[in-house]
Design a binder for these strands. Structure first.
Lengths: 355, 355
DNA sequence: TCTAGCACTCGGATATCTCGAGTGCTAATT
DNA sequence: AATTAGCACTCGAGATATCCGAGTGCTAGA
């Protein structure tokens, strides 16, 4: 399993082995208990035979490096975002999930449902297993292959367009036309479009259409002309749509560090609007392996005390979407990473097998 | 505009005019400020020229009747659920929305979008205008008319069934069949089903199919036999599905009476699972006018400190769905009632005009 | 370089106090 | 009989004080 930092984040800080050990213990302890960790506890647990005083000195150094901080003078230390980052990048040992757990996940994912439903399911699954919020970005539509197109008259000048995509997904659009078509005209238009466009992905379809229109506008008979007009209005809005399913938001209410109601609210509102989240997640698309954003790194304010662990999924080794988990920075990264990684693999496998 | 209580809730408590006036003022004041109302304030505001002492006596009576209560000895009074109920049933004066506001709502609702999108929009609208949570129960599928059916082969033994309903709604199902069909066979099956079933609502379709199968099973040729088998598996799952869109949940975070994080959480979880909420809302379907559930009346625990103001909407004077608002019991009922009522009417109008 | 020792800090828990809004009761007033 | 004034009382909110102990930083000695 491969874990990558977002490209722009570079860790230059170097610390020696003893400091590493202590930082690691500190983070593990803090993640477990949620309490600032004091020098005494750390000295005792670390098995390094150091006195609390020595540990304190080291903590002083780590604090100077910006890896830990103390909430106030007489409390222990807690990791900073930078501390988590170092931890995740070089201290963390991720053990893969044991086989039982993988099987359990597989069972949940490998069902017969439509992709749409499956996405919801995976999202809930992630949320359920991690007790945080699960998120799945739906496959980017542009890259999907168009299998078939149907046109049905609804009323004069209104046509229901049904696009059957690859992998059992179906999209419906309603378009208005300047002219009223007879059912048989519609059938002809559909036939033409199916013949000339089926099997290409939406982006390609769109380009090809525009080209056709430019080149042959004058030569076409009226019907084909109309077909192209119509198709253009269908595919016009195709680009922007992709969607993002978030499940288990309420899990986040359990984390004391998020329970300030205003922060929580802004987070939930962010989930609802999704736009920004999508943008953050988009950055993960394409890069292989598990990606992690910690706290501020996402550059998106409502996610400030949160981390984002994601992995892309896809078919034929081409990433088509991203899934992951959103939770407080203070999360059990090792576990979450394994889960997200496994889920992405399993989900890809299911999509692949549906071919 | 008509406001109805759920049938089972009967108000028998009789109070005299002066008590009514005071209760009304108390509720209005409490709804406005969220503070328990004391005798002095009430005496001053009421213009009844009563001394605080008198008001206190009256409050004592109202408390004995269970209409108000005091959070503790030395605080003012707040309304109980029963108090709100009496208020809503006989004290409330709802003024209709002024024309500007109706126009604004109308503009938001009367768009060209598909019913699905429109439902989301109406839900957000309700949430936005009232600053509470908006909820719309999607039209019950059983009553919808089937216009057209399409069958498309996905792979061997997997068929995508597209049901085009009335009013631009489309449902997709994937079914597995025992046998692999050729495209032309599928076309024939679709033709047969369209001919014999188009125009009926799903419930009827289902009944008719079962009847057909019993009566003529032996007489049919193999193809038709298969058509029926297939159709049966499509319509089998038709009954249960209806859905419910809730928007603006986070608005509820603003209300101090709900801000206890556990209560809030159980409420949000309830929104997510929706099942129970749907059940409560189902009770509203069919009854004309605006319906109000206050606090415990819904019989559903997570809604305890909440009220529900709903109205049904429909086409041709037949209710097909319910919309409304969920907020704290302490809400501005007059305003909310007008808004819900107006929205339901406007929504119905839009649906009707789409014929 | 590490550690023991020590004075110091600060947050959290708990107790105490004060203030004032509001009550209920009683007795006087209308 | 209904209303009101008067008064003692209650109780919560907020401010203030106190204590405790975990944890720190620093210094000097091992």
């Amino acid at each position: 399993m491969q874990v990558r930092s977002p490209a722009e984040i570079q860790m230059t800080t170097e610390i020696n082995e003893r400091e590493q050990t202590l930082l690691k213990m500190l983070i593990e302890s803090y993640v477990r208990d949620g309490q600032p960790v004091g020098s005494q506890k750390l000295a005792r647990d670390s098995r390094l035979n150091l006195s609390p005083a020595t540990v304190r000195n080291i903590m002083g150094d780590l604090e100077a490096l910006g890896l830990v901080s103390s909430p106030h003078t007489s409390a222990g230390r807690i990791p900073t975002d930078k501390g988590y980052r170092l931890f995740v990048d070089s201290l963390l040992t991720v053990q893969s999930l044991d086989n039982d757990e993988v099987q359990r996940l597989k069972q949940e994912i490998d069902t017969d449902e439509s992709v749409e439903v499956l996405i919801e399911r995976v999202s809930s699954l992630l949320s359920g297993v991690t007790h945080m919020a699960g998120v799945v970005v739906a496959p980017r539509r542009e890259h999907q292959v168009l299998r078939h197109i149907e046109l049905l008259p609804l009323s004069d000048q209104r046509i229901l367009v049904i696009l059957v995509m690859d992998k059992q997904e179906v999209q419906n659009r309603i378009i208005r036309t300047a002219h009223a078509y007879t059912p048989s005209e519609l059938q002809q238009v559909a036939n033409y479009l199916n013949a000339s466009l089926g099997g290409a992905d939406l982006q390609t379809v769109r380009k090809r259409l525009l080209a056709d229109m430019r080149e042959t506008r004058s030569k076409l008979d009226r019907l084909m002309q109309r077909a192209l007009d119509m198709a253009e209005s269908v595919f016009a809005e195709t680009a922007a749509q992709d969607d993002c399913v978030i499940a288990g938001q309420t899990n986040l209410m359990e984390f004391s560090e998020l329970s300030d109601i205003d922060r929580l609210r802004s987070l939930f509102d962010a989930f609802n609007s999704k736009q920004q989240i999508l943008h953050v997640l988009d950055q993960c698309l394409g890069s292989p392996g598990v990606q992690i954003f910690i706290g501020q790194e996402s550059g998106y304010e409502p996610l400030n005390n949160c981390s984002l662990v994601t992995a892309s999924y896809g078919v034929n080794n081409r990433a088509i979407g991203v899934l992951g988990v959103i939770g407080p920075t203070r999360m059990a990264y090792d576990r979450v990473i394994s889960i997200v990684d496994a889920t992405a693999r399993l989900f890809s496998a299911v999509l692949n097998q549906r071919h």
